[in-house]
Design a protein around this nucleic acid. Structure first.
Lengths: 246, 246
DNA sequence: GCGTAGAGATTGTTCAACAATCCTGCAAGA
DNA sequence: TCTTGCAGGATTGTTGAACAATCTCTACGC
């Protein structure tokens, strides 16, 4: 609120502006904690990790006891997760973990392709203004996936792959794209649980993520976009095959 | 649920299937009527029509009396609108009509371009399976906009233009694209209210919508996609200019 | 076997109350 | 004059109980 008028140099002012932004980000993160959102966090983990399988009903009275929140607060948590696509409401019947089918696979992957390929392609135009360290989160995710694979922890490989794509979208600096991608990937997780062997699902993409990362690092954005497109087509095909031979 | 096994001709069976679908749609529409969603409908109109300006706070006790619902139900209505981007929550401070700025204009239009252009381009591949009457809603919207312009009702022109783009996305048969577009356009409405003269904002696009429609009708999808891209760039520029000279 | 009525369970909605937090105004101190 | 700290009031966050509306399931009669 209070614009400091006594600054002597523009440089100091600039630094202070940057610091103010980081503080604002911290405050926003602290503000995120309400009972309903904490309950939603717990449920979100249970769903994405498969503890609550697709089709399962979430009883209100049961969960109020487990989560130690009131029914009203629990229902607000349900609403939050409904908006993320992780729960569906059936009027007067309750909330359920949605059961996605092949049509949803096609729908989700169509959107993923559109968004992710566009982001990579858009990087070419704004390459100069893009700091080198913006790619670091991607590198971390690639290495996390490789490490998890060596340890035979395929669920962890899956989440690392997810984070890779979330960070990829993050390069666009679009708050709305980030939110959409979050929802899309959450729904994708629901689909993964119908697959018996997570290894076959995730293993091929560890190396492809690294390849993609190196193309980005080398600033070969057009080839990266083409690779990513084929990557997502292959991934979609794999999921569809798994569905049909289920 | 009950598959009728005694049908003699496929034609009758088909007719009944169609009827079942319309009934299902009606039921779904009736199901939509919960107190929270009715309250949300009223608030949505108030916001998109500008009765509640950006930055305004929505008091809980005040609105419970006006809308005649309990605080809990009202809060559920708030959640619904929050998800659509028409309201923002600030913990312990209340809900507000968001104040969008130029950065949001750029963000929203980037997504619009990505989605809409991709939809049009994608039509080329599935042209054969696309029934001719799929374009009828678009034609209706174009004519509605033209009629409203003649009657000097520029707000109605704006909503008709919105519906045109919503129906355009609808051609992709993607439930998630539809939902995203609904949110994007709702947020866009918020931006329109900072513009003093809605006529200048909407008038140029009546004719361009018709041009786009005719290109689609003629199945010139590539040119339609190119036109649409430029269309959206121009529209974005117009909004940004209006912002700066505000 | 089939349709139906009714009991029990679950969700939808409201209300009243209390706790936690924020905003406002004012006074004390540098 | 400006900042700091502290009430007091107002608003939101959360809870628990209550009742209405709806669904599900079982038992009954045909």
């Amino acid at each position: 609120m209070s614009d400091d008028a006594g600054m002597s140099t523009g440089e100091v002012d600039e630094g202070r502006q940057a610091w103010l932004r980081t503080v604002a980000a911290d405050v926003a993160r602290l503000d995120r904690s309400s009972s309903a959102e904490r309950a939603a966090d717990i449920l979100r983990r249970s769903i994405t990790e498969g503890a609550l399988p697709p089709g399962a009903q979430l009883s209100e009275v049961e969960l109020t006891e487990v989560l130690e929140v009131s029914r009203n607060t629990l229902r607000e948590a349900f609403r939050l997760l409904t908006h993320e696509g992780l729960l569906v409401y059936k009027l007067h019947r309750g909330v359920f973990v949605p059961e996605l089918d092949e049509h949803d696979v096609v729908d989700l992957y169509r959107l993923r392709r559109v968004l992710e390929v566009d982001v990579v392609r858009g990087l070419a135009e704004r390459d100069p203004e893009l700091p080198a360290d913006r790619l670091e989160p991607l590198q971390d995710d690639v290495e996390a996936a490789e490490a998890a694979a060596l340890a035979d922890r395929w669920a962890a490989v899956g989440t690392a792959n997810m984070r890779f794509h979330q960070h990829l979208i993050g390069l666009a600096d679009s708050a709305r794209m980030d939110a959409m991608t979050g929802r899309l990937l959450a729904e994708l997780r629901l689909l993964f649980h119908v697959i018996a062997t997570p290894r076959e699902l995730h293993e091929p993409y560890i190396g492809r993520n690294r390849g993609l990362f190196e193309l980005l690092e080398a600033r070969k954005y057009d080839q990266a976009a083409a690779d990513l497109n084929q990557y997502l087509l292959d991934s979609e095909r794999g999921l569809l095959d798994a569905f049909r031979s289920r």
